[in-house]
């Protein structure tokens, strides 16, 4: 399992036609993700980081360059590539377990195994006891856990996370970051997280890719060499954060001097 989930994005470009003019949103993106690695992509809104995820998950086939998973070019969507959206996107008319089970509809698993897989993943995200509950009865954090379970239940090689914690309150967010780490270790699945929260990226990732906008391109690729569990208040943590923010051009000239 650990040898699968090898993602290679090479020379990927993407443009939209806006009023007859070509608008380039991704410009020659190159990124290699090793099996089992946790990578975050940070960048300002509009830098194309979510667009990149849409390409990798297979929702958009219209781009230049190549995306390879385990050395095979991807085509369309596939259960090998799971995704968690910022809005949990649980179907309101299905119970929590039916929502998770929906990801196994075309998995080819026999019913008994499907049920077991769903129960295991409900337990993995700590929602045992809520199987028969409808989404409107769940809090935002619980819904997002369910969405993570749905993303993982088909045992994908890579899980794409599109700002999954962006809409949650600060405390729930910290808790779910902890959960994500635990789940990542338990499942040994490759994770590619898009976020605008630099601290979240440092807390979770092996590597952080910083993107710039217009056109969206990779500005730097920073390895995070901090031991786990990571201490958000440590000097080393702050050093990494400074480096990333600098690379994002987050500091105005005045702030840069102060920093």
């Amino acid at each position: 399992m650990s040898e699968r989930g090898n993602l290679e994005i090479s020379n990927v470009s993407k443009s939209y036609q806006v009023e007859g003019k070509e608008l380039r949103v991704l410009d020659h993106i190159n990124l290699k993700v090793a099996p089992g690695e946790f990578i975050s992509i940070v960048g300002p809104s509009g830098c194309g980081k979510s667009t990149l995820l849409r390409l990798v998950v297979g929702l958009d086939d219209n781009y230049g360059g190549e995306i390879l998973l385990d050395n095979k070019p991807i085509s369309g969507t596939s259960l090998q590539r799971g995704i968690v959206f910022q809005d949990h996107r649980l179907l309101p008319w299905l119970t929590l377990e039916d929502n998770i089970d929906l990801a196994l509809e075309n998995s080819g698993l026999p019913n008994a195994q499907r049920r077991r897989a769903v129960a295991e993943h409900v337990a993995l995200v700590g929602l045992t006891g809520f199987e028969k509950v409808y989404p409107h009865q769940l809090s935002g954090g619980m819904s997002q856990r369910a969405a993570i379970a749905r993303g993982l239940v088909s045992r994908p090689e890579i899980l794409l996370l599109d700002e999954p914690l962006g809409a949650l309150d600060a405390l729930t967010r910290l808790r779910l970051q902890e959960e994500l780490l635990r789940i990542w270790r338990a499942e040994r699945v490759t994770m590619l997280l898009v976020t605008h929260d630099v601290e979240e990226a440092i807390y979770l990732s092996d590597r952080i890719v910083v993107m710039h906008s217009t056109p969206g391109r990779i500005a730097s690729d920073i390895k995070v060499d901090l031991p786990w569990p990571r201490d958000r208040a440590s000097h080393e943590f702050a050093d990494v954060r400074r480096e990333i923010l600098r690379s994002m051009d987050a500091y105005s000239s005045v702030a840069a001097r102060a920093a």
């Binding site: 929702l59 969507t77 996107r89 179907l91 299905l94």
Partner: peptide, 20 residues
């Protein structure tokens, strides 16, 4: 968004109609 989700979960057209 739900149609897009069905796409991600590789639902067939019939499954999309019935489930979503």
């Amino acid at each position: 968004n739900f149609i897009e989700l069905a796409d991600v979960l590789t639902l067939t057209r019939w499954q999309l109609v019935r489930k979503v």
